[in-house]
């Protein structure tokens, strides 16, 4: 399914289930004291940070490639990607391995985040897709949702994992 098609299906889903209580599970993680969420079905595994093999002449957010059971997986630093202040990697720095069906086929990629937070059931109708101010990162953001009075930023993985820009 192409990225565009998938997007339109999701928008449809959001519209039609407004009264219902259909929920979608999101895995959330912390970065720069903000909570971000990704669709839990895209998460392959969560692992501790380990040194990756550097790829020459790659952008600064590309931290290298790892061996994930025989597959070569690129690892990107999400702080760097979002141009947030960078921090040193520590023992609690984690890598979330994500797999998303893009228009170039399945892509697996790891993102480096500060720490894993929680798993939430998010009612699809509660996701606010508007009101996000346009900024340089807004195209990575699917929407906002409030969980326990805290804001969670839901990420658009299709965009995030297409790295050819």
């Amino acid at each position: 399914m192409s990225a565009a098609a998938q997007e339109s299906v999701e928008i449809e889903k959001i519209q039609t289930t407004e009264e219902g209580l259909a929920t979608q599970q999101y895995l959330t993680f912390l970065m720069n004291d903000e909570e971000y969420g990704v669709d839990i079905l895209a998460v392959q595994e969560i692992r501790g940070w380990e040194r990756a093999t550097m790829v020459p002449n790659s952008p600064s957010h590309m931290k290298g490639v790892l061996n994930l059971r025989g597959t070569i997986v690129p690892i990107i630093d999400l702080r760097d990607r979002f141009q947030l202040p960078s921090v040193d990697y520590s023992d609690i720095t984690v890598v979330v391995i994500l797999k998303v069906d893009t228009d170039k086929g399945d892509r697996t990629m790891g993102i480096i985040v500060d720490a894993i937070s929680d798993v939430y059931d998010v009612p699809i109708g509660k996701v606010r897709t508007t009101g996000v101010a346009e900024n340089r990162n807004s195209h990575f953001i699917k929407g906002l949702v409030t969980v326990d009075k805290n804001m969670v930023i839901l990420l658009e993985l299709q965009k995030l994992l297409t790295i050819d820009d």
Partner: peptide, 12 residues
């Protein structure tokens, strides 16, 4: 192993 499968072609 392919690097392009999950990433892209890298010069050199």
């Amino acid at each position: 192993k392919s690097l392009e499968e999950n990433y892209k072609k890298v010069e050199g």
